[in-house]
Design a protein around this nucleic acid. Structure first.
Length: 179
DNA sequence: AAAACTGCGGCAG
DNA sequence: CTGCCGCAGTTTT
């Protein structure tokens, strides 16, 4: 059975103000494709997200925009505690990334796991570094909660989004407070 | 095809 | 504590 490829994949973008700055996101017919946050203004947010969808046709879907906007607002406000079963556009991910992201998504709200733990869960305990590499490219934080993955002995390590480790800590704090 | 990267981890000094 | 390899996957030459 052959599956047909959809001829066009219009992208919807949206921005919303949250407790973690302005958030911008891009959604295709498959689901959420990109998401960034901590922007100081809606213009900044829009500019950045436009870069991620260069060349793709835009469309408007108020329903999609408001649904996602609300989710981000609630998550960063502390009332939404799970992005489970939310559609993600995984088209551009490698197999390894899919496996990593899937596993990371199963870390419960407010909990953490180490890169090594994720790696051994995937079947190769030596792949911790590769896990970090994959998480660095997380296209949809905080939906894939890469902030819940920390180093084995030290408490913290990098976080590539604007705000770095401090931001990572702030998000974990948010989750802890609303546990 | 090879080398150079990483949000790691573990084991030396 | 710091430094140094080995590791696996991705990106860049």
């Amino acid at each position: 059975m052959k599956k047909l490829k959809l001829p066009l994949q219009n992208t919807v973008i949206g921005t919303v103000e949250t407790k973690f700055g302005w958030v911008s996101f891009a959604v295709t017919s498959k689901g959420l494709r990109d998401c960034r946050f901590m922007f100081p203004s809606p213009d900044c947010a829009t500019d950045e997200i436009l870069k991620t969808i260069a060349g793709k046709p835009l469309s408007e879907d108020k329903n999609v925009i408001s649904t996602w906007s609300l989710m981000f607002k609630e998550y960063f406000g502390g009332s939404l505690k799970s992005f489970d079963k939310v559609p993600l556009d995984s088209e551009s991910w490698t197999d390894f990334q899919k496996r990593v992201y899937m596993t990371v998504q199963s870390i419960p709200y407010g909990k953490t796991a180490s890169y090594g733990t994720i790696a051994s869960y995937l079947g190769n305990g030596n792949a911790s570094r590769a896990v970090g590499n994959a998480l660095k490219n997380n296209p949809v934080p905080p939906v894939i909660p890469c902030h819940r993955v920390i180093a084995a002995d030290k408490d913290m390590c990098g976080f590539s989004a604007t705000g770095g480790i401090e931001l990572k800590l702030k998000i974990l704090e948010l989750e802890k407070d609303n546990l």
